[in-house]
Design a protein around this nucleic acid. Structure first.
Length: 415
RNA sequence: GGGAGAGUGUCCCGAGCGGCAAAGGGGGCGGACUGUAAAUCCGCUGCGUAAGCUUCGAAGGUUCGAGUCCUUCCUCUCCCA
């Protein structure tokens, strides 16, 4: 880290704070400078979409492409079939092949907004292509003999387990080997020289480099990002309502915008650097805003980060909706909405049911409690009667505005 | 294979003489104060618009009554082999 990187790629990553560890910064810099650096990151397809927790690695691939490199998204179609052992106490149900396939599609869709795919551009490959056809004995003879158990035992992830006498299953041990082998395959097939990932992936990546050396690939490199926690110390991307998804089917664009808008003051600068592509001068200016003014920075952050995933138009619209709702205290037709059938509406809907239907509370019992605490509002009026029934009289511009607290609003419309 | 211990409110940790919808935290949500922030203070945190119903690893049993006692089973941890 003594000398500043010369390549655009590493220069950007360093000044924006993406780099936690690198196996050989100078060597990688040379390689990037020579042009055509191919790097990849692996993603499991266990979930129906990606959430903000994966955003950091995604940004790495994006920067790689922007600075002239070639990013590869490695989908863990093969490894997912085995089941990642790290999700331990849950009885890990094996995902059906159909689920894996549909999750993979969703993954593709998310990446489409971050990377350019096509001839000579970004690539999306599935490790099922080579992993599922492996023969156990052949694999042991050709690849397995290169793994040094001595080395693997010395790795932090393994060592910790052993020292604490925690069990480490053979499957887990092999998961690491699969990942290492992926690196070699990607090097051979596509000339990938760099694998990136979160700091927890360090051991796995380095094992891949080691395997590559023994199996005669060109020099491989590792680069990891810092583990991202919020200023209040919690893990990023999980809220009580669930993960902050990157696809609008799972999380409305407005809610995504709100997620960024509501970040801690202390996170603004870092997030601007990591999750937007604003020039450093601009991020520094915004970060320096104090007191009330920091809110302007948060709006910029929210809009920029949202634009990256959902497009500029959608982001601006979310910003506009927020302005109406929070700064003018008005309803907005663009708030997330939930529809109920006309017949149901005609008969009158109890408020408890209405709020549950809107997804603002999980159960009618919870709705009841929230009413006692004064947290629910109908058309901006605090709700006090849990027996109240909503009907046509409550419609304002064809919808009823239901609110939970100051921030969460949903429109209920008859359809 | 032998011995010791543990699994509690579907977020986590964690008390629980046979009367328990179950102490206490953390987290989360809501309210007040603010700036849609942080900190602080207060409230809520099983389902059910009622009666009531269902929770303490699983299944049985004892009892008017079981998280608590008995039996079997499952899972995890520790010690010996």
């Amino acid at each position: 880290m003594s000398t500043a990187p010369k390549s655009d790629f590493l220069h950007v990553l360093q000044e924006r704070g993406f780099i936690h560890q690198c196996s050989d910064l100078a060597g990688l810099d040379e390689k990037a400078l020579a042009g055509g650096l191919t790097g990849y990151i692996g993603f499991d397809c266990t979930a129906p979409s990606l959430h903000v927790g994966s955003l950091l690695p995604i940004m790495l691939l994006r920067w790689l492409q922007k600075t002239g490199g070639k990013p590869i998204v490695l989908v863990g179609g093969g490894t997912t079939r085995v089941g990642d052992p790290s999700g331990k106490d849950e009885s890990r149900k094996l995902l059906s092949l159909d689920d894996i396939a549909s999750n993979k599609l969703a993954l593709q869709r998310v990446f489409a907004s971050f990377l350019r795919f096509g001839e000579g551009e970004a690539l999306l490959v599935d490790n099922a292509e080579w992993l599922t056809n492996l023969n156990w004995i052949d694999f042991l003879r050709e690849v397995g003999r290169h793994f040094s158990v001595n080395r693997m035992l010395a790795m932090d992830s393994v060592k910790l387990r052993l020292e604490r006498d925690h069990e480490l299953s053979f499957l887990e041990f092999n998961y690491m080997c699969c990942q290492a082998y992926d690196f070699v395959e990607l090097s051979r097939r596509f000339g990938a020289a760099l694998q990136m990932g979160g700091s927890d992936q360090w051991g796995n990546i380095v094992t891949g480099i080691d395997l590559g050396r023994r199996m005669g690939t060109p020099q491989l490199y590792a680069l990891t990002t810092p583990l991202l926690t919020t200023a209040s110390g919690s893990k990023m991307g999980k809220t009580a309502r669930g993960a902050v998804w990157l696809s609008r089917e799972l999380l409305p664009v407005f809610d995504y915008w709100q997620f960024w808008r509501n970040c801690d003051d202390g996170d603004v600068g870092r997030f601007l650097r990591l999750f937007t592509e604003l020039p450093m001068g601009e991020t520094a200016r915004l970060e320096a805003l104090g007191g009330n003014e920091i809110n302007e920075a948060k709006k910029v952050l929210a809009t920029e980060a949202t634009a990256m995933v959902h497009g500029r138009d959608e982001a601006e619209r979310a910003a506009g909706t927020a302005r109406q709702v929070f700064e003018h205290g008005a309803a907005s037709a663009d708030l997330p909405s939930v529809t109920v059938t006309r017949e149901e509406f005609a008969g009158g809907i109890g408020v408890l049911t209405a709020f549950q239907r809107a997804g603002l509370v999980a159960s009618t019992s919870e709705a009841r409690r929230s009413i006692k605490g004064g947290g629910l509002r109908v058309n901006d009026a605090v709700l006090t009667d849990e027996k109240a029934v909503l009907g046509t009289d409550d419609l304002r511009d064809g919808a009823i505005k239901l609110s939970l607290g100051r921030k969460r609003h949903v429109l209920l419309r008859p359809s």
